[in-house]
Design a protein around this nucleic acid. Sequence first.
RNA 1: GGGCGAUUAGCUCAGUUGGUUAGAGCGCCGGUCUCACAUACCGGAGGCCACUGGUUCAAAUCCAGUAUCGCCCACCA
Length: 921
Amino acid sequence: MVPELEKTYDPKSAEERWYAHWEERGFFNADPRSDKPAYCITIPPPNVTGELHMGHAIQHAIHDMVVRWKRMQGYETLCLPGTDHAGIATQMKVEQQLAAEEGLSRYDIGREALLERIRAWRDKYGDAIYHQLRKLGSSYDWRRARFTLDDAYAEAVLQAFERFQERGWIYRGRRMINWCPECRTVISDLETEERELNGSLWHIRYPGLDGGPDVVVATTRPETMLGDTAVAVHPGDGRWSGAVGRQVLLPLAERSIVIVADEYADPEMGSGAVKVTPCHDPNDYAIGERHGLAHIQVIGFDGVMTEEAGRYAGLERYACRRQLVAELEEVGLLVNTVDHLHAVPHHDKCGTVIEPLPMEQWFMNMEELAQKTKPVLTSEQVNYVPERFRGYAVEWLDNIRDWALSRQIWWGHRIPAWYCLHCSSDGLIPMGGLDAEKAFAEGSFRVSVADGAKPHVSVCQPDRCPDCGRADWVQDPDVLDTWFSSALWPFATLGWPREEAELDYFYPTDLMITARDILYLWVLRMVMTSVECRGQIPFRTVLVHPTILTKDGRRMSKSLGTGLNPLDLVELYGADATRFCLLAQAGAVQDVRFDAEIENNVVTSSASAEMGRNFGNKVWNAARFVLMNLQGYAPEHAVRGAELLPDRWIWSRLSRTIAEMDERLHAYRFSDVIRTLYDFLWRDYCDWYLELAKGRLQDERAQERLPVQANLVQILETALRLMHPVMPFMTESLWQALPKPERAPESIVVAEWPRLIEDDIDEEAERDMARVQEVVTAVRTIRSEMNVPPSTRITVLISVPNADVTADMERMVPFISPMVRASAISVGIEVEPPAASGSAVVGNIEIYVPLEGIIDLDIERARLQKEIAKFEKLISGLNGKLGNEQFVANAPAEVVEKERLRLVEYSDNLQSLRDSLQRIA
RNA sequence: GGGCGAUUAGCUCAGUUGGUUAGAGCGCCGGUCUCACAUACCGGAGGCCACUGGUUCAAAUCCAGUAUCGCCCACCA
């Protein structure tokens, strides 16, 4: 009747078998018509191009732990998975493939054909991440998996866009933007990443014209000088007071440009004069606006010099830079070159250096929405863990900037703006030499409001042009920033803009677990859109998980060779061990140095995961032991034993463990949760209770055996439930194997979370058991240091100060004896120590282990001397403290009293140690 | 330039509101195949709690500063 367990736990078979079973039984499916309280998490959707990395792994280990915990607590839990279409990243991937395999660009095959290929790619690879998440054990409602580009989602995106537009926040305009010459699209400020580069600072002389002064300017980007249209000096800079309004010669371009006075020029920097390139620098653009300077764009959207660059046209921007520097040097206008370390913005997706360019784009003014959102943060409607991230969020809202919404790519939600072919034709410019018809058909044209294009925003194609009455429309060629759609994630996935039961029941969601790097980019934008579209917060708590680094503190990255595929860990150690070690390291810290050896993106071993595996194996074997010792046990008649010290103690410890688990889970202190489980199961249950149970399990008499069996089973069963959210697979295997009453739930997944039983807490048992443990450890130390072989039985004498203690100790003796392999233990008041014995003191008792003929007196003397030295040091410390009048006068009375008692105890201990040493001197 | 985090044993980390002798796992040393587990058991060694000041009777813990590493924000040529 009792199933046989393997000697070691085999994760692979358990994982496959149980996951399929759970899914088939529908345990992960959520029902919005339930009468239970709701608990909901919409997971941060990974990119469809994504492969599971350690950041995901820790995030999902947390997700699933919380969700399983809540499910067991009786909540109707929904953990909703999904993926993000990740416009730029996905399109980039498919374009790269297209180039590599067919030598074609997206412009060669056109919009529809490219989209077709991306869809095919997604069909093939898009679900990969779901399978990876299943391997981790994630208990998500897969029926509800959403994709940010599916039809229903598109409805939400259009709805939101229209709403923001009606508010007057969305506009099309010409502004300085971040352009990625590689991806050929604009990106938002948040998608740029500053990287420190070793560059140069070139000082260049611009000769004065008509007797005006020469000007020396410094630049990190000489190629932009071809687009210079002025030189600026500070209006208060005395050195240049006469120069404003004069002309200088722009070298190599052989143009004359004017010197203007502008506050931006910093007199402290170099000569105090700065070159002004309105088209290629955000600051210079602003100067240009103030002084009405001409715009000369010399770098094109492809990163190649334009016709405006004259004879440099056609040169790649860095080739042009090198050539310009060489030519300047030749003509003697390069004053000097200094090494210069500076931060340069790069595109976070492809790593290309951003080109700031003035361009017409769609923007969203965030000012009003930010102000509307601020109160839900400051009033703490949204809870941040750790709390400090709230402040950063508020600060970001206070300094909010307009959001560049449009992207010049094809994979995404098309901007719902329409142009009348007749009224707007001047502003619709076919691209790449396409004829107009084809360009419009494919959306391959550029829009210029300045040149006369007039957008009509509408969720679907408008009927007739309100201006000319005709009905020939073309849609805006751009798509929305991916983050625009993901900003709607928590409510769009639950059915918005339709009023679905899910939205009503599960919204606001409960928990958003995220990495730090998308707190603004994504998390805060979700709060903003929810405040606007739903009038409520999207989630109650934002939990920021740590970043996982390598053991030596480097980034985990495939290109560095430091990448770690979490599924490799699952392969090596099992999903449970992987989850265990991830959670063990998920404390309140910013970074985790993951304890694993990695070579060329392959993990060879992980001390941390081994700990998880070993823990699982330990519990597995404890269960195996219990199952092997259940002769005569019947769950329906099982009555737990609570008479003897170890029994009272283990029930007390279990209660404390339950309390601790609840407290630590509520505080999201996962590393503490792990420690609680580890200490209870390994240290308390295995090391002590199980060892002490062995004797009674051998007992012939059923009335002696059955209560212990009941305890072993019931404690383990409860502990398995506590463990289940961390190690779902192994706990299910064991839980199924344990004998349970008839009406037990069918799976640990849906079993009830253990409840604290206050009455089980037994202070006295805990104190006594602690004393047992101290004595056992002291005797074992003597055995070990005296090299007493494990097979040799010993006798132990315990000397106590009075009769009360005698009674206490005599109760404990039966539990000390088997743990130290003693043939006899006697307790007496102030007993005469045997001649040749090892000795130790524990609190107010002395322990002697007679070792006639075995004891090595030199070793024992050394041991005693060491102990004596320890107590001497403690006592001198205490004497100093208690001799200090300030301490006695100011410290709380109970602290002083405690120290006094310690001094007495230590002095007694010291005395008996000295006596022992005396006897063998 | 501004803000934040970290610094505790050889390694990876705990240490809640200041108050016994600062803990764990791995690694190391010694001893055990003791009938659940060698992925185990028993014992041991190992720490000026980054540094300097300060507050306090009392500081790993609170405050100030310094150093090193890391993160975020910022348009400085």
